[in-house]
Amino acid sequence: MTRLSVPMTAAILLLPGAGYLALLFGLPLVLAVLASFGVLTRGYDGGPTLAFYAELFGTRAYVDGLVFSTYLALVPTAVSLMISVPLAVLLAQSFPGRRLFTALNKVPLVVPGIVAAFIVMTLFDRGGTAARVLAPLGLDLPKLVRDDWAIGAVMATVWKTVPFMTLIVGGAMASINRDVVLAARTLGAGPVATFWQIQIPLALPGITAATLLSFIGGMGAFAVPNLLGPVYPLPLSVHMYVNAFERANWGLVAAMGTTLSAISCVVLLAYYRVTRGLRAAGGAR
């Protein structure tokens, strides 16, 4: 019997699992990237080209769309983070009504994004519920739906994101050894210093994971900005839809998708950089 080298044996043993993953996750991505360069592109047979990227980065509306997609990833994520992290700490304490609060906080988890968008719309659109309630008081609601800053879209996204972020961050906080937190207190740290010096760093893997998921969701957001966002710019996801189904420009669609994925990848790498030190220190506990 011939002896196989160790890496070779490992590769063969890994093949069923890794091959499956490669086929399922890798192949579609590779095909999309190839299509964006004119290789095996649907409805195009002009050979390899950079023309689709040229079109994407040469068209004002698309560049603005890309910036807007990034904005829709960044802003709701940042706002949700500022709400979720303190909320996770709060929910870890015991206080009257905690169970009810925790249950209510989970409601948005079971409401689909499109439904959330419609809720925000009926509440905050011109002539919506909030406007009608405030009108008799002489108060005028600012434009929140289809406004330039996409506040309505940000609100709907935050509403969806906060519970899920709280859940992940809360889990990360709960897994911190309680004695470690108490040790900080006995060493002279007040609650605020303990929060920043001990709880946040130790929950960082959870916090960054939640941030990452929220960010990537925002990059590809379609329904919510489409319903609640401004008329211009449109997020890149909407341009992808239009180019695919109204213009059959699949090469451009692939270039847009590849670009969105590339930005998410950059964020993912940044995530690994941030948490690497912690994982090296065994701090993920």
């Binding site: 050894n177 004695d179 108490l182 006995t186 002279g188």
Partner: peptide, 16 residues
């Protein structure tokens, strides 16, 4: 934090 007491925990509770 106002007591100036040093406590060594059974689990040591070092900051990982």
């Amino acid at each position: 934090e106002g007591r100036n007491v040093g406590l060594v925990f059974q689990s040591y509770a070092l900051f990982p």
